[in-house]
């Protein structure tokens, strides 16, 4: 219960911080932190234009996309406090429920019959497919490490042994940071600020969405960031008391947002055909974590 409240709270200002960081780095003052939320509220009030090509899929997809990400947030725990949905193997549910949302966002893009949106959809499907093994090897390694199989149990027992776990946590944070960049279609895989449809991934998929639906898709993006931030924070919170855990959580989220802002300010987007290589590199980093776990557990004989 606590985690979903905190995730919802951080999602309000998360994207604002990213935008603000980017503005400051490039020497501008930038919009207020709450500007993204204001945008969404404005979109909620607007009317909508639908393409004549689209079918029912296009109308229901944004709602399902939002709901699946919201459900995924419910699985994420907060330190030693369980998420609302928690059972052994819940991270499999987490990954697959996100896949449901992705399924609908892809077919909704294809529903418009636009070749640009098809291109974005195809890339989204391809890149998220490559990101999948990294996440599973990562969580599998931690399942091996702690002997537990649910998010909550893994995170709450992670730091009970030696402090080497913080190092593993650091590596895991890097992998998750990159996965979240891929899943949210940010640099270096995708550039949300590009103005050429041919080089877009996520932005081009929602070209035809407008009004409430667009607002819903944008807020899903904010929620997704906060969700990944929460998982990263969970790697460090462990069994801390609330009075320490909540400020630490917020601090990690803010740091995470600033980090994304900095990455976006100083990196250019990769060439599209380099993306798969980059994403597969993440799997190898995850594999490194797995080897680290094997070392720590003395499994090499």
């Amino acid at each position: 219960m606590l985690s979903i409240i905190l995730i919802l709270f951080t999602s309000i200002f998360f994207t604002g911080i990213i935008i603000r960081t980017k503005s400051i780095v490039s020497g501008r003052k930038g919009p207020v932190i709450l500007q993204p939320v204001k945008d969404v509220v404005r979109l909620f009030k607007k009317g909508a234009i639908y393409s004549e090509t689209t079918s029912i899929i296009f109308r229901i997809a944004p709602v399902i996309y939002f709901s699946t990400v919201f459900m995924a947030c419910l699985v994420v725990p907060f330190g030693s406090y369980k998420g609302i949905v928690s059972f052994d193997g819940d991270f499999i549910f987490f990954a697959y429920i996100l896949a449901l949302g992705k399924f609908f966002s892809i077919i909704s893009a294809m529903d418009t019959g636009s070749s640009f949106e098809g291109m974005g959809a195809s890339r989204e499907a391809l890149f998220s497919m490559f990101a999948e093994p990294a996440f599973f090897i990562l969580i599998g390694s931690f399942a091996l490490f702690t002997g537990n199989t649910s998010f909550h149990n893994i995170f709450s027992t992670l730091h009970l042994g030696s402090s080497i776990t913080y190092m593993l946590g650091g590596l895991a944070a890097f992998v998750l940071l990159m996965i979240s960049m891929i899943e949210n279609s940010r640099m270096p895989v995708d550039d949300p600020k590009t103005h050429l449809e041919l080089t877009m991934i996520h932005e081009v998929m929602i070209l035809d969405n407008s009004g409430f639906d667009l607002g819903l898709i944008l807020s899903t993006g904010y929620l997704k960031f906060a969700m990944y931030g929460a998982i990263i924070a969970d790697f460090f919170i462990g069994g801390l008391f609330l009075i320490w855990a909540i400020p630490l959580f917020l601090m990690i989220q803010v740091l995470y947002a600033i980090m994304i802002g900095l990455i976006e300010s100083f990196m250019a987007r990769f060439r599209m055909n380099h993306n798969p290589q980059f994403i597969l590199t993440l799997s190898s980093v995850s594999f490194l974590i797995f080897l680290g776990v094997l070392l720590v557990l003395d499994k090499f004989v």
Partner: peptide, 14 residues
Amino acid sequence: FTRGSEVKYSSTWG
């Protein structure tokens, strides 16, 4: 939210 708002139909953005 969309009860009263206007809905228009047009061709896909090309």
